[in-house]
Design a protein around this nucleic acid. Sequence first.
DNA 1: GTTGATACCAACGAATTCGTTGGAAATGAT
DNA 2: ATCATTTCCAACGAATTCGTTGGTATCAAC
Lengths: 194, 194
Amino acid sequence: MAWDTAATKQKILDAALEEFAEHGPAGTTVDRIAGRAGVNKERIYNYFGNKRALFTRVLAAESERIAGSVVFDPAHDDPVGDYAGRIFDYHTAHPELVRLLLWEGLTTPDEVVDEAARAEYYRAKVERFAEAQANGVLRDDLTPGVLLFSIMALAAWWHAAPHIARMATGTGRADTAQRRAAVMTAARHLATET
Amino acid sequence: MAWDTAATKQKILDAALEEFAEHGPAGTTVDRIAGRAGVNKERIYNYFGNKRALFTRVLAAESERIAGSVVFDPAHDDPVGDYAGRIFDYHTAHPELVRLLLWEGLTTPDEVVDEAARAEYYRAKVERFAEAQANGVLRDDLTPGVLLFSIMALAAWWHAAPHIARMATGTGRADTAQRRAAVMTAARHLATET
DNA sequence: GTTGATACCAACGAATTCGTTGGAAATGAT
DNA sequence: ATCATTTCCAACGAATTCGTTGGTATCAAC
């Protein structure tokens, strides 16, 4: 069999994403990642250094993935509802990201992976909100940064605290469509008069 | 020195709360809890069984503490803003609870500590929201459960994802008063027409 | 086909951590 | 004062896990 180092690295990254999202940095074992990837543990240390560095790498990759994926469209009929709905969709399709972010916030909130690039990503989003406020599309009694943050809260909380969602709303089996509609409505109220 | 088992137990619980909130169930070591409490490790196993059981115990205690502490008051001028502000205050004063809840959601979302009692607590809250909706105090285009859940999201997200708050809003040092005001405004928009 | 370099793996050492155990110190009852 | 009971602790065994090492298989160049 021929070597395929790119594929080996990718298998490790895929396995690490699953394991880290599921068990967090402390709960994940390098042995399990290696086992899931079907690769020897030594490869992980050779390619990525150590466990924490691998976690960092995985989180950076996932952060980049969402960056270009969900974009605010001020020309939409219901710009904020649509935007919040699509954030919700992203998290529904890729539940790993929220979990990685929460692990990061719980373990190393003051030492954030690739903070400069991620802050810049948020800054760009905030800029678009500020424009929409200036154009009268959105309410302006919340600063654009707070508005963005609050919409992310509404869209992500369902995945961040699924057990609380279950207890508070009573829905045993999560009704995704219903939740998506609720997120849209809530976000719209937040940012517009309607 | 006389025995004081109640004090010993309490010292363990206090230390465990700090350690679990800080490092989570997997990241916490029983040795560190014992060290922080100034107590021998064996006492922990004797009094509380094992590490997971102690985590459960701590979380149950904190869940009970908030239950009677923050109550919705429909007679208030700005009932929802006031309520959200007070939830925010509670989390600001006791940041451990949000962290414990997140760790629970990340590690054992389907096996929740004392779920029946906690679900009942949420049900009572939802009931009050439903009444306020029936009386025209609150919008009724969101179900009362969703409304409660969304307000909790707005109030808790700042503490759940502090690093994202920092990146999105740019405030290096958290301005608590400003954030509290933002939570109030956002919650008010969510639930009322003003 | 020989050689040097690289990808890979089985097995290992060292450290950490859970949970236990055997016994010492303190207490209350007789 | 004695004795059974309870609280407490130092030390330990067993298991887990991180990260490494020595050696083997594969490749590319000549």
